[in-house]
Design a protein around this nucleic acid. Sequence first.
RNA 1: GGGCCGUUAGCGUAGCCUGGCUUAACGCGUCUCCCUGUCACGGAGAAGAUCAGGGGUUCGAAUCCCCUACGGCCCG
Length: 412
Amino acid sequence: MFKLITQDKKTNRRIGQIITKSGVVRTPVFMPIATKGAVKSLTPEDLKELGANLVLGNTYHLWLRPGTAVIKRAGGLHNFMNWSGPILTDSGGYQVFSLGEKVGSVNAFQKHKIFPSEKNFTRQASSLVPPLRDTVPARRPEHFEKAPTSQRVGFVKITDKGVEFRDPIDGKKHFLTPEKSIDIQLALDSDIIMALDECPPYPTTKEQMAAAVKRTTEWAVRCKKYFNKKVGRRKQRPLLFGIVQGGIYKDLRQRSARELLEIGFDGYAIGGVAVGEPRQYLEEVLKAVIPLLPKNKPRYLMGLGKPEEIMAAVNFGIDMFDCVIPTREARHGRLYILASHQQRFYDMIQIANRKFAKDFKPVDYGCQCYLCKNYSRAYLSHLFKTSEPLALRLASIHNLKFYFGLMEKLRK
RNA sequence: GGGCCGUUAGCGUAGCCUGGCUUAACGCGUCUCCCUGUCACGGAGAAGAUCAGGGGUUCGAAUCCCCUACGGCCCG
């Protein structure tokens, strides 16, 4: 259930509440990511103290390890990870993308002869997708190039029936269907369940994207049907969200949204964003999709983002976010601080840099987090340079505090 | 006094025997860029060395020879 409390007249910013079986979530909300049942380096007590009220867990990862049998016996994911607040679980759709072949790279597309060559790409496919050059990708292609090709090829196979995964660790095959995804999420005792979707990377031809939208809709129908069958009219039932796909193609995005609306969900997510497309498309996608979405249902922009992206999206009417950036950047020694100048409202520092070795000021004077109240830049810098695990925890606390502080402001 | 071993970026090393794919490699350190429904304490890159100094052999020397300096060890 969603309660819309206020909506800005000037912008489309909304303030509301999502009522879940594990508690109320005030929106706009940012979810820290606990893929495998833990926000890396942090305890649930840390999260509570920081002001988190909804965390994201991942169906795919928890399914493989430790498996639903273990989590069921533990009394659900809440009990297992000692987090009593609301949990949203991702369906596993994203792992089709992230564990797949080097799908996001231009090379992969050339390899599969979707486009003949990069040279001809611009000329031949310009009506379908914008040229790759002279644009700033929302996500750099190298992102997909990290693992050796030999380890990536053949990890994922998609059919209308579902998705075949190969476990990246032991190579075992697993088959995920829309129904299976719901089953797992119910076993986890998730509060917000995501329908299984297909999330193609950028660039994808319009034809292929249309097929992905069609499949996403078909899977959404199956998810809804199976969900209703399993949950029935249970009073304490979890919420079920559908995911809008369609890439950078406005008409496909709108088709996807309309089809999902027809099925009817408790909330609507916009997925397939920040998968390599130029950043300018985010705005276009939001403008195309949001007006179609009902006002009395929460809207979730999946996987985003940077602080400025979140602020912008809130003003477009988005209520929910999740992103690895604050925690991952923290683990890489990059910390958010409020800026002293006007161009941007924040800066980032690389704490391991030599210049911080003798800097005994807090990371950010204005910050009230556990790190800034108790430790110096010099100390944190030292922890990073000597690879002390405490560095990861302290930095994660700080960056999440920055994000939650931002959300707090956006809720006023 | 005699003999042996060593000296290669800020640090630690490889290459030397068997001279040329060396435009001197690697790790750490330094710096920059990147990370968007986490396979992620990760990725990409840059800067940095007259190969201790000098002389010789050679078409060609970090590499072979001689001298010097510095450091270490051994014998008197």
